[in-house]
Measured scan of single mutants.
Amino acid sequence: GPREVTMKKGDILTLLNSTNKDWWKVEVNDRQGFVPAAYVKKLDSGTGKELVLALYDYQ
């Protein structure tokens, strides 16, 4: 199956793709996968990378 990404509340993840309104593709610890968009919030990183903050645990 697809590689699952797990996250804990407060984690910072790299946002790869947010074109789908329900599932965003993120990368964390060299793993890529989809997380519910409602579970993360975009951060203003000030760099080229888009980052998101995990609002809830997800696994």
Rank of each mutant, 00 (worst) to 15 (best):
P2V: 12
P2M: 14
R3V: 14
E4L: 15
E4K: 14
V5T: 05
T6A: 13
M7T: 02
M7R: 00
M7Y: 04
K8S: 07
K8G: 04
K9N: 04
K9W: 04
K9I: 07
K9D: 02
G10H: 03
G10D: 04
G10W: 03
G10Y: 03
D11R: 01
D11G: 02
D11N: 04
D11L: 03
I12Q: 04
I12A: 02
T14A: 08
T14D: 04
L15N: 00
L15M: 02
L15R: 00
L16I: 13
L16R: 02
L16A: 02
L16M: 05
N17W: 06
N17F: 05
N17M: 07
S18G: 08
T19Q: 10
T19P: 03
T19I: 08
T19V: 09
N20G: 08
N20C: 11
K21Q: 09
K21L: 08
K21P: 14
D22M: 10
D22C: 15
D22E: 09
W23R: 02
W23G: 00
W23C: 09
W23I: 03
W23A: 01
W24I: 04
W24T: 02
W24N: 00
W24D: 00
K25G: 05
K25C: 15
K25I: 15
K25T: 07
K25R: 10
V26L: 04
V26K: 00
V26Q: 00
E27T: 06
V28W: 11
V28P: 00
N29T: 05
N29Y: 07
N29F: 07
N29R: 08
N29D: 12
D30I: 03
R31T: 14
R31P: 01
G33F: 15
V35T: 01
V35P: 01
P36C: 07
A38M: 09
A38Q: 11
K41Q: 14
K42S: 06
L43C: 10
D44H: 11
D44W: 10
S45H: 10
S45I: 11
S45R: 09
G46N: 14
G46M: 11
T47C: 13
T47W: 09
T47G: 14
G48T: 10
G48F: 08
E50P: 11
E50S: 12
L51A: 06
V52D: 00
V52T: 02
L53P: 00
L53E: 13
L53V: 14
L53Y: 08
L53H: 03
A54W: 03
L55N: 02
Y56I: 10
Y56T: 10
Y56K: 14
Y56F: 13
Y56R: 15
D57N: 07
D57R: 02
Y58L: 04
Y58S: 01
Y58D: 00
Q59G: 12
Q59L: 10
Q59K: 10
